[in-house]
Amino acid sequence: MDIKNLEKETNEGVESLPSDERRSFLKMGLAVTGVFLGGTVLSLTSVSTAKGGNSDSVVPVEGQYPYTKHYGMIMRQNKCVDCEKCLDACRETNHVPKGHGAWRTDIQERLTTIDGIEKREFRPILCNHCNRPPCVRVCPTKATYKDPETGIVVMDYKKCIGCKTCMAACPYNARYFSHDKYAIDKCNFCLDTRLAEGHKDTACAAACPADVRIFGDIKDTSTEIYQLLHEPDNKIWVIRPECGALPNVFYMNA
């Protein structure tokens, strides 16, 4: 196109555009704006139907589990004595290096002194496998995603570019950069190391001598986790409910 000549042309205006063409152009603009307003461009996760529960509970409501199997874990927190057998089992099973802030599961400790008597509380933590995972939303290469069959937040190490955006996005700090894999690594409920081989539980749950970690399909009414979650007397909570990620790791006192 001759740009010099083009400048001399008069603007033909929109009046001469066929109405169909104009209409589809406007539609596209509205769609783009609407999508941004609705946030679905940012929420690359496909689980727009995911629910965390009714307004006053963090426990999922029956019939609102988006996955075929919907794996979760419930911690009977006050039974944890920080023996860390779970940590050792996890490291061994999933080849998690020691040090460098690398962990797939950890135990937090809170010390308080009341009337000169030291009190301690231990809280096991791991990836919460959220229904609305912020890490998945921010990943620029879709290297981390919700496994459509199990709801587990998994990593595709080959796609990961190590930008660590997911580490910053995770409300639970449950991700680390693995120098071995040269990618981000995280808990995947032992999907490849145990569940794929027919085990019914994760390495950490199997190693726990106090039955703190109860792993299972929260969709299956016969599982212990289902029963614990839906026992009316159990007070169930999650960590950081306010971030709206709808975690699938629950806590209670036994």
């Binding site: 039974k79 023996c83 231990f122």
Partner: peptide, 9 residues
């Protein structure tokens, strides 16, 4: 439990 169980930490 945690009166006696001080944990690894």
């Amino acid at each position: 439990c945690n009166t006696c169980h001080i944990g690894a930490k």
